[in-house]
Computed example of a mutant assay.
Amino acid sequence: MRPVTRRTVAAAALAAALAGPLSLPAHSAPTSLYAPSALVMTTGRGENASTAAPDRAVTVNCAYTTTGTHPDPRQACADLDRVNGNLDRLATLRSNEAKPPCTMEYRPVVVTVQGVWRGTRVNYEHTFANSCIKDTQAALSLVF
């Protein structure tokens, strides 16, 4: 490179480094009035998420509009609203329903939920003894 070109490139880089932060607003406005609520729900065969063979994963977004790959994202968001995002309480939503009997076989199924609920980070994991117990004990939003 010629010396003049090196100086020109160095001056341009210095100008960009100094002027770049000055061109940004001091506080950026939020893009939405609603706190983010986007979750990824997974099921897998195994005792915990780190060793489970994944079966399925779905997404649900419960912010202003309800979207996602979940089969019933509106019901999932409604269930989460009813327990105020407390995933441990989701099983109580089905406590009044008649439950079919399940076999006592041990084929563990792990359910995980990760993401953000109303601006708070979520990292949830629960293991059921088998898929029948998962289907009867888990709330509608987790049965996918």
Rank of each mutant, 00 (worst) to 15 (best):
N86D: 15
R89Q: 10
G85I: 01
W117L: 08
V109G: 02
N86H: 09
R118N: 14
A91R: 00
V83Y: 01
S95L: 09
R107Y: 03
R94W: 00
K99G: 00
P100D: 13
K99M: 00
Y106F: 11
M104Y: 10
W117F: 10
W117E: 07
P100L: 13
V111Y: 07
N96E: 14
R118T: 07
A98W: 10
R94Y: 06
A98I: 08
T92Y: 09
E97G: 10
L93R: 07
Y106K: 11
V122E: 04
N96C: 09
L93D: 01
T120D: 14
P100I: 09
V116T: 15
G115R: 00
N96F: 13
P101W: 08
T103C: 08
R121T: 15
V122D: 05
N86S: 07
V111N: 06
N96K: 13
W117Y: 14
Y124G: 01
R82A: 15
P101E: 11
V113H: 04
T92C: 06
D88A: 12
G119T: 06
V110A: 03
T92N: 11
V111S: 09
G85W: 05
L87E: 00
L93M: 04
L93G: 04
S95D: 11
M104V: 12
R82P: 02
R107A: 10
Q114N: 15
P101D: 11
V110K: 05
R121M: 14
V113G: 07
A91D: 05
V109T: 00
S95I: 07
M104S: 14
Y106D: 12
D79R: 00
D79C: 04
E105M: 03
P108V: 03
V113L: 04
L90Y: 00
R89G: 04
K99E: 02
V113W: 06
V116R: 14
V116M: 15
R121N: 15
K99A: 01
E97L: 15
Q114W: 08
G115E: 06
N96Q: 14
Q114G: 13
D79M: 02
E97S: 14
T112F: 07
N96T: 13
T120E: 15
V109F: 00
P108S: 02
T103M: 07
T92I: 06
R89A: 11
K99R: 01
M104I: 11
R121Y: 14
G115F: 02
L90Q: 08
Q114L: 11
Y106G: 06
T103D: 10
Y124Q: 03
R82C: 04
D81P: 02
K99F: 06
T92A: 12
E105A: 06
V116I: 15
C102T: 02
R82Y: 05
V113K: 08
N86L: 08
D79E: 09
W117V: 05
L80R: 04
N123T: 13
Y124K: 04
R94T: 10
S95P: 05
D81S: 10
N84F: 10
V83S: 02
A98K: 10
V109P: 03
D81A: 12
L87S: 00
R107L: 09
Y106P: 07
G85L: 06
A91I: 03
P108G: 07
L90M: 12
T120Q: 15
V83C: 02
D88G: 08
E105I: 08
V83L: 02
R121S: 15
V109M: 02
V116D: 15
G85S: 03
